[in-house]
């Protein structure tokens, strides 16, 4: 039984191809301007990696912002449900899933089977999303993937306005001009981000185990701050946290074929 999940997000597009609970391919690409192009390209990549043709996929579920435009899917499911499902697959004890994507941030509570019980999303502005970190990394002149490590090396984190990305950017520039170290500013960026996310998580309530999906889960500074703010350990997922949505979609596809949820 070969199934696939296809997650077309605003910044990246992901596909997971699975057979009998084993992942055959899970490529990630930058999204194109049109979701259908992204979908085709990332699926082609996945298929060639897995050595399969499209017809071999027995069931495919689409998710993400672009899910309505994916040509080859059998069904679509919201990314909120998919992230919950994917996280549950990787970490059966997961009850709270924090997903920080490029444009939004969501927190989901799931039951033992991975079914969504409660969720909240924050998508009204960039502060509190991956985009915030991207902008700040850019201003600081560090690579996005290096931003997280700055926290550990900070000595005296600076105060940072964090309600609005545009203003926070101005503050970062001012701090740079005042000669504050990149580490101190970077740590504050990560902390500011974590604080905004913590409000959301607390709104639905923390229940163990907690895990994170989405690109920001790779930022160790944000993760550490969040752990401190929430007072829980955030369990690391065994896979690239960016593909959790696509993985969840693939798991849904598998369940579909097997006839109903587990």
């Amino acid at each position: 039984m070969i199934v696939a999940g296809c997650d077309i997000g605003s910044l990246t597009a992901k596909v997971v191809i699975m057979t009998n609970g084993k992942i055959l391919a899970s490529p990630v690409i930058k999204s194109k301007s049109r979701p259908e192009e992204s979908a085709k390209e990332v699926m082609d990549m996945a298929l060639s990696k897995a050595g399969l043709c499209l017809d071999a996929i027995e069931y495919c579920i689409g998710t993400g912002y672009g899910r309505g435009k994916i040509p080859f899917v059998n069904e679509v499911i919201s990314e909120i449900a998919c992230h919950g499902k994917g996280a549950r697959f990787l970490l059966p004890t997961a009850r709270t899933v924090i997903d920080i994507g490029g444009q939004d941030c969501k927190t989901m509570k799931i039951d033992r089977s991975g079914k969504l019980i409660k969720f909240i999303t924050n998508d009204k502005c960039a502060a509190g999303t991956g985009r915030f970190l991207e902008v700040m990394a850019n201003v600081l002149g560090v690579r996005l993937e290096d931003l997280g490590a700055l926290s550990a090396r900070a000595r005296a984190p600076v105060a940072l306005a964090s309600t609005c990305t545009v203003w926070a950017q101005a503050e970062v520039v001012r701090n740079i001009n005042e000669g504050k170290s990149i580490e101190d500013i970077g740590a504050s960026v990560n902390e500011a981000m974590a604080k905004r996310v913590a409000i959301l998580v607390n709104s639905v309530g923390v229940e163990k185990d907690v895990c994170m999906s989405g690109g920001v889960a790779k930022n160790i500074g944000v993760v550490k701050s969040l752990e401190r703010l929430l007072g829980v350990k955030i369990k690391k997922l065994k896979l690239d946290p960016q593909i959790v949505g696509a993985l969840g979609a693939a798991v849904f596809a598998k369940e579909k074929l097997e006839g109903g949820a587990e």
């Binding site: 609005c164 203003w167 101005a170 001012r174």
Partner: peptide, 16 residues
């Protein structure tokens, strides 16, 4: 700025 919440705009930016 915000009179009670300097996360909106820091005091230094405000003074500037």
């Amino acid at each position: 700025g915000d009179a009670f919440d300097d996360r909106v705009e820091s005091i230094d930016a405000l003074i500037n």
